[in-house]
């Protein structure tokens, strides 16, 4: 068990039915997350990173969404083959999720205590007092002052940062092994963002919690994550430990992403990747990035590149990288 990865996603394909046709938002996305690590998942808006994290919990709205294929192995069990009830049991208990908008991800008409106790009691037999004790403990763990007051407060009575801490506390009440964090700091201002990241890093270390951290902020990745997966147009195109990725970005898209971080480019000008993300309804053949890639060759238009290991903990899907076909 120790060497099987906690989460192993293989060839995940998810599509959404739209009026314009079927949009293949994920196309054979693969990703491995090891126990105890914080894995960053980065990419532009619309690249499918949020869909990937929601697919793990099987909470993609269906219709219009549909998981067409692939496997999601969590501790060796394929979540996609799990009966509905077993899957529900897993949610919030073994795998939890926090979201981008702390303003809207708590129910406005119930108190924090009501919502937190509900999660505790959905997964184990606990009296109201026992559930309360668990909630208070978790609220203290996310360093919320006056946890009793927070418990009896309604979400609108708390600030954005406090709400996000409440969310984290709520999601960790059952001590899950995996936390999916879908851009949890994007809606917060920078100082609060720093506090939330610190809390997550601390809890991850203390509880041996694995985090899949979805973001589009390379700075956050550098600060928090151990490894990173870069997604482009529904596929994972490069996976590496954080140091290697920033030192030797290999996929042209990753290079573009890193070059476009403000302050890194020389000359003080912002570098941008030309063009825009291709439509998932009619994606380009071959490598999906070839339409924006300055170095694309014929092979890029023809064949989908496979993941190639270029260093012990560094894989990339590009025809042009060392060991690639052309």
């Amino acid at each position: 068990m120790a060497d099987t990865p906690l989460l192993d996603i293989q060839g995940l394909t998810v599509s959404f039915e739209t009026y314009q046709g079927r949009a293949r938002v994920l196309e054979g996305a693969s990703l491995t997350v090891n126990r105890g690590e914080i894995m960053g998942l980065v990419g532009e808006t619309g690249c499918g990173k949020s869909v990937l994290s929601r697919a793990i919990l099987r909470i993609i709205p269906s219709p219009p969404g549909h998981i067409d294929g692939g496997r999601i192995l969590f501790e060796g069990t394929d979540l996609l083959a799990l009966p509905r009830k077993a899957m529900r049991k897993l949610r919030g208990e073994r795998i939890s999720m926090i979201f981008q908008e702390p303003m809207s991800s708590l129910n406005p008409v119930f108190t924090v205590g009501n919502q937190m106790r509900e999660v505790v009691r959905a997964h184990r037999k606990a009296s109201r007092a026992e559930a309360n004790a668990v909630c208070l403990e978790m609220l203290s763990a996310v360093r919320l002052p006056e946890p009793e007051a927070v418990l009896s407060a309604y979400p609108h009575e708390l600030s954005g940062g406090m709400r996000q801490r409440v969310m984290i506390a709520m999601e960790l009440t059952c001590r899950p092994s995996l936390l999916l964090a879908d851009e949890p700091t994007t809606a917060l201002d920078v100082t609060v963002q720093g506090q939330i990241l610190a809390i997550l890093a601390e809890l991850a270390a203390a509880e041996n919690l694995t985090i899949l951290f979805v973001t589009h902020d390379m700075g956050v990745v550098a600060q928090l994550c151990h490894r990173v997966a870069v997604m482009y147009a529904g596929q994972v195109v490069e996976v590496a430990d954080v140091a290697s990725l920033f030192a030797r970005p290999t996929h042209p898209y990753t290079r573009g992403l890193i070059a476009s971080i403000p302050g890194r480019a020389t000359g003080g000008e912002l570098t941008a990747i030309p063009g825009s993300v291709p439509s998932p309804i009619d994606p380009p053949p071959g490598c999906r990035f070839h339409t924006r890639c300055t170095q694309a060759v014929t092979a890029c238009r023809r064949a989908v590149p496979e993941m190639i290991r270029v260093a012990p903990d560094h894989s990339v899907a590009c025809h042009l990288c060392p060991g690639g076909r052309p």
Binding site: R88, L90, G92, F99, S104, N107, F110, E118, V119, A122
Partner: peptide
């Protein structure tokens, strides 16, 4: 379609609870 409904589902609450408690009161 609200975020807190996704939260409730992601927390493993039953469909009945999500609809009749979380959605209904709102």
């Amino acid at each position: 379609g609200q975020d807190y409904i996704v939260t409730a589902r992601a927390n493993g609450l039953s469909a009945a609870r999500v609809v009749l408690k979380h959605a209904f009161k709102n």
